[in-house]
């Protein structure tokens, strides 16, 4: 294919003020402003959001899924971080 491959962008949309931007998908575009325009047309045709972020996919660093177990196991044996670990008598009421 003779055409230059256009970069891939990851698209994040905030559904409304007060919420996080959330990853919704990706698309190809030559630059950031075209990526934002395309993201509007592809991912917000029915009022899905009021703000768009686009990030070059190549700029995202990710944890390695093949070492996912070791990566996240430090939290596995720390049940005392959860409120349900502590016994509080019912009479105390909601806490």
């Amino acid at each position: 294919m003779p055409d230059t491959m256009t970069p891939l962008w990851e698209v994040f949309i905030r559904p409304r003020n007060g919420l996080h931007h959330k990853h919704v998908g990706s698309l190809h575009a030559a630059d950031a402003s075209l990526a934002i325009q395309s993201a509007r047309d592809v991912y917000t045709r029915r009022g899905e959001g009021n703000s768009i972020w686009v990030v070059p996919s190549s700029q995202i660093s990710a944890s390695d899924p093949s070492s996912g177990k070791e990566m996240f196991d430090p939290a596995d044996d720390k049940v005392y971080r959860h409120p349900t670990f502590y016994d509080i008598p019912d009479e105390v009421g909601n806490m």
């Binding site: 294919m1 055409d3 491959m5 891939l8 998908g25 990706s26 698309l27 190809h28 047309d41 592809v42 045709r45």
Partner: peptide
């Protein structure tokens, strides 16, 4: 018709995560 174009783009993106390029 615009929706159909959008659906095509969501799906191309999903296929691309498996290592095939849009150009291909």
């Amino acid at each position: 018709v615009q929706d159909e174009g959008g659906h095509g783009l969501y799906l191309y993106s999903a296929a691309e995560t498996l290592g095939v390029s849009r150009e291909q």
